[in-house]
Amino acid sequence: MAVTLPRTAVAYEVALPGASGSRAWRRFALNPAALVGSLILLTMVSVAVAAPWVAPHDPAKQSLLRRFTPPVWQAGGNAAYPLGTDQVGRDVLSRIVHGARVSLLVGVAAVLVSLVVGVAAGLASGFLGGTVDTVIGTVVDVSLSFPQILLALAFVAALGPSLLTIIVVLGLTGWERYARVVRAEVMALREKEFVEAARAIGVGRPRIVVRHVLPNTMSSIVVMSTLQVAQAILAEAALSFLGVGSGNAYPTWGQMISLGRDFVTVAWWLATLPGLAILLTVLAINLVGDRLRDALDPRTT
């Protein structure tokens, strides 16, 4: 009975970024905020990757003779330690440079975990509907009922703090937004002609989801991921600030701020500078994410 012509061509019309993709890209690249954000981000990533070569000193090397050296522009500063030293004489600049590694690594890795879990849940929820949708919806509701930071803190402590635990726990406490957004998009796409056409020519469900529905949710997933990385970096900083980070094996920004808080009356730079590093990184990511959203949003075309 299904005599309508298979309209496979239509399926790719919306799916692939063609001409409109390059227009979106141009809009993004020409925006000053996006440019500044991208540049800061690029610098941060390069610094993190090249940390051992960029850092002037060993971030763990202590020297009680050099305790509380102020930054170079202040009286008593030392050009060899441009951002000063901490309570045991470790170089602040080197620690910030090495801290970038943990922040960016945890931020990106945790979001990848969230992305896989959340997108899978959202696709299943939106495409299958019914009981699956109800169950996943309940799980989302439950997991949104906790203050993320407390739940993550409790599980990291119980499981034993390590970089891997932090990544997994942050990933599993931050996937709900993906599930919600992807579900909503899939529900809308499900009724579109190109999906119907694919179904009509006998394409199986899994293939429809992966080849036809998923590509159409990509732009929101990309935008969401950028903003989620910013959130994950803030969450990691909060965890290590509260002292359930990955121990003292390597410096993290949150842990540096936590120590700096204890010496806030004698050494302002200890808490201030790593916080500025977080601010710069997260701000850059937020700027890029926000502009990406504007550039990819079909409504503003």
């Binding site: 910013a230 803030l234 900083a237 909060a238 600030f241 949150g254 701020i257 700096g260 808080r261 806030v264 009356t265 302002w268 808490a271 201030t272 916080g275 977080i278 601010l279 997260v282 701000l283 937020n286 700027l287 926000d290």
Partner: peptide, 22 residues
């Protein structure tokens, strides 16, 4: 808004503490 959403809340607290208390 952008600046505010990019700062860790505990850092905001310590900065205020540095200025107003210290």
């Amino acid at each position: 808004v952008f600046l505010g959403q990019s700062m860790p809340v505990f850092w905001i607290g310590i900065m205020l503490m540095l200025l107003f208390a210290v």
